[in-house]
Design a protein around this nucleic acid. Sequence first.
DNA 1: AATGAATGAGGATTCATTCAT
DNA 2: TATGAATGAATCCTCATTCAT
Lengths: 224, 224, 224, 224
Amino acid sequence: MGIQERKEREGERRRQQIIVAARRVFSIKGFNKATMEDIAGEAELSPGTIYLYFKNKDELYASLSLRILQYLLIRLQHVNSEKIKSPEKRYAALTRAMIDVYEFDSLMLINMFNLQTNETLKTLTPELLSEIKMLSCKSIEEISLIFDQKTSDEVLSGCKSSMLAEIFWSVFSGVVLFQESKKSVLGEDKVFLQKTLATAFEIFELGIKDSLSRQQSEKGGLQS
Amino acid sequence: MGIQERKEREGERRRQQIIVAARRVFSIKGFNKATMEDIAGEAELSPGTIYLYFKNKDELYASLSLRILQYLLIRLQHVNSEKIKSPEKRYAALTRAMIDVYEFDSLMLINMFNLQTNETLKTLTPELLSEIKMLSCKSIEEISLIFDQKTSDEVLSGCKSSMLAEIFWSVFSGVVLFQESKKSVLGEDKVFLQKTLATAFEIFELGIKDSLSRQQSEKGGLQS
Amino acid sequence: MGIQERKEREGERRRQQIIVAARRVFSIKGFNKATMEDIAGEAELSPGTIYLYFKNKDELYASLSLRILQYLLIRLQHVNSEKIKSPEKRYAALTRAMIDVYEFDSLMLINMFNLQTNETLKTLTPELLSEIKMLSCKSIEEISLIFDQKTSDEVLSGCKSSMLAEIFWSVFSGVVLFQESKKSVLGEDKVFLQKTLATAFEIFELGIKDSLSRQQSEKGGLQS
Amino acid sequence: MGIQERKEREGERRRQQIIVAARRVFSIKGFNKATMEDIAGEAELSPGTIYLYFKNKDELYASLSLRILQYLLIRLQHVNSEKIKSPEKRYAALTRAMIDVYEFDSLMLINMFNLQTNETLKTLTPELLSEIKMLSCKSIEEISLIFDQKTSDEVLSGCKSSMLAEIFWSVFSGVVLFQESKKSVLGEDKVFLQKTLATAFEIFELGIKDSLSRQQSEKGGLQS
DNA sequence: AATGAATGAGGATTCATTCAT
DNA sequence: TATGAATGAATCCTCATTCAT
């Protein structure tokens, strides 16, 4: 048992070793220009070894997303598990969670966003694909839940909260990707992503609050 | 001259023919998996012919972005040229412009957002790259100007309006990309992108308004 | 039309050029040890060109069999079309046909026999596979027909003639392969295959004749 | 010594274990497509272990032939050692021996026939190669001897009997391989190989008898 | 003796790009 | 200008074999 366990842990370490190398190489060279040999070299392994842990290049790339998605989901579930009553505090916790995720591994986060609108998805193992889908859906649902709880006492339907969740997620991904693109296109050196994110979330929060209060008084607005 | 002109116009038609085909193929297969032969087949031309009009695959891909960026800039400049006084109406015009751009060619728009954090950028001709940068920057500036005019009479600094512009841009791209990713990852069939976009902009607008009014009274908040 | 035609003929020439090279290389190095680069080199083409005419290595290998199978079928159909009355002469024509096929291209013939009991079959295009099956079946049927006509006036059922055809075919392939193996295993230099084949066919003929005459008198023997 | 012996016996058991697994895998996937890992898995051993018992893949494959060849030779020697006088009974014993060999291990038999015209031969150790050659030659010689004895009192030269032996061998291998190919190419489900073999041998026997009797009377025919 | 993770050379295949027509 | 056959470098991936444990 102890041996079995140690071996599995050893294998997991290898996987991480490869993932770390792949992350570095992919983020420098991009998916297409990065070769498996590059990654093997970065991981100080031979190319063949990578294939002991990942079926092919596409799956290796997609696996990068998995870790950040897992972290994201755990972080969001944690927010919900705290059963925060005040909507404002719940929203603040959500915002904090997203920024945490970003800080946890921004490179992988960007990889993930790229993956999601990418041809690579179409060539993945069904297992990996459904794992990614499952994690994505669950995360959106958790965000939705945060908004749902928040707005349940404020007369907003569930359908509305899922849309809020999607928009919130969009704002997040949009800001992250835009900041990334600024580096390459707009030539900005220092990126104040956190500040921008915080501002974006703040604007978003204010907007929702206002929307809610208007709905209470007018029973109109966003529902249409 | 007449002949010269007709030839040029003929050439421009060919370029468009190729661009249209490339747009279709790229949006179905993605940049990496799409081959020049695919595109040539779609355009009912031979591979060699494409190289008479585009230096290589990367430039062809980048050209797709160029057209939409040009349209975007023109649309934004038009908003500003109208010298709308009321901040609310100016914001509404901006929102309308963005949705126009989206409807003009959503496929290319998505391509462009992908391009920005993509390896493709790294291999472009300097001319094309700077063209893209220039258009992107100008567009952001135009948006910034819209917010600037809006808020100039509302005690917000220029730095603030450029950040608003960036966040607005992020929200836009985030929503567009998220809707795209929903198709492939989340498995949604019908996508109500326009509605989502409208809602996102509405929330954003409410948030900004609230932020502004709070600033007036408290002289705090977002500036920090 | 003339241009179209010339191009097609040009393409067919290329195919033959590749097939000839492949035949040489496969027969020297065997399937596994022969590389596509070897074949390309032998054909004085680049590796990529081969893939314009053959889907992959397996299909190229299988295509070698196609030509000999086609020749075989035509040769057998010709025998049947001659409507030879005398059973002895019909059998002689069959024997001659088989030896012709062998002389036409013995290397390809051996390749074909190897192919038939080979894993390669499992990875072919359905089209190519069914082409091979069709040709094989038709050839056996033609042989069967030769025996059928021969024995129709000799009280043998169709089932019997198809078995005769299979055994005849087996004798043929067995002799060919054995002679080939003698080269590599038994170290024989000069191969008297024709003589051996002729003898085998002669023995086979005598055996059938005898069998038939016995059946007539005894109504027993082979049918059981 | 006791320990030594037990170890050797243990080792021999392992060899057999591997051979049995290899036979299965090779016959399902063929030589090229079968991997050492496949075989190791089938034998419930690790890849490394196989290399303790067999020098490499080629030798393992060749070893499969060795066993059947050894069995064949013993069986044929047994026929000759019986000193059967009647030519008919000797021939019947030969036929019985061949069918025995087929039944002993048809999979390996087919493998062996494939081996003979295969690239594999070219990479064997000289020792193994000469072992195979030796067994093959001896077997042919034994068959030849059976015919020789048969025909010695029937005025046929030794050259003639060796040719008979080769043809007999060819008929045997041809029928076996053809039946195998029927499975994959002709799509037959039930294979009446034994019956076909019996028929083929019967035809062959009748042919030889007839040939011999004709020779006696005419002093012509096959000798040429 | 047995393992099985790691190796890395080797080969099939692809595809952007060219160029003779 | 247009073609599309040909190219061949580049790269993914396999798998027989090894060797430290």
